[in-house]
Amino acid sequence: MTIGGIDIIGLTAMLMGASTPVLLAATGELVAEKSGVLNLGVEGMMIMGAVAGFAAAVATGNPVLGFVAGALAGALMALLFAFLTQIFLSNQVATGLALTLFGLGLSALIGKGYEGVRPPPTAKLDFGPLADIPVIGPILFSHDWIVYLSLLLVAVVWFVLRYTRAGLILRAVGESHDAAHALGYRVVAVRFAALGFGGALAGLGGAYLSLVRVPQWTEGMTAGAGWIALAIVVFASWRPWRVLLGAYMFGGITALQLQLQAAGYAIPVHILSMAPYVITIIVLVILSALHRHGVQAAPASLGKSFHASS
């Protein structure tokens, strides 16, 4: 199916892969922010995940170990952030920015020897005859396992936050850490866990970029994906399904503008490259403005330092 030189089915199939790094990072950041911590270091955690995952996959020849290493690297970065902001009570905004700069620099250093190397490929899952169904087959059943994992994680995060006691405690800590502390919940421990989870997902997203999307290592290869993930969380009003929508819209427009460039449309390439960022933000701003009256979207303790002074 081709419209105006654009293959719609191919585009839709491509969209899911293109969106996965941002989706993973945004889902992780959503959990961290729901616990009341603003971690601006998503970009830094992603790129550390990208380089660590790449190095591990090349060294072991096993891409799965690469993804594990990417998630671990992201989580370690997040725990560093947690240590500084939750134990030493440093400013979250400044620490997050520093984490991004630190990650970009350290990853460039680690990645020096890996430029031009090809990583072991990650196979697409084989769904047998399902993949041969017209239209649906190529769109839904032609991806690798990380894509399905990312969708599953969105559903799990949504379910846990909404229906489980652990999710309720996490939201309570993000809503009012003083009240949660007074009731006997361990605010700092909950935030460490949420940050670690968020960092692991950001690292996984980064590893997906370097192992599947590109696939090779280049310095600064996340190219702002972490920042987009942060914006998506805010404009999605901290709701998992809207995060999915925002991430897929970003991925979709990225895929579309690449195809438009390839099809030779006379649109300046700068405008096309800019389009995913601009359109995603515009749509999510409109959505967040429409949300139900009277419901405060942001967790009330977001970005505030907690110290049990009593």
Binding site: R171, S176, Y185
Partner: peptide
């Protein structure tokens, strides 16, 4: 020690 953005039942459960 209440959470404004949560419902009465959720507050009690906590």
């Amino acid at each position: 020690s209440l959470f404004e953005a949560l419902s009465v039942a959720e507050n009690v459960a906590l």
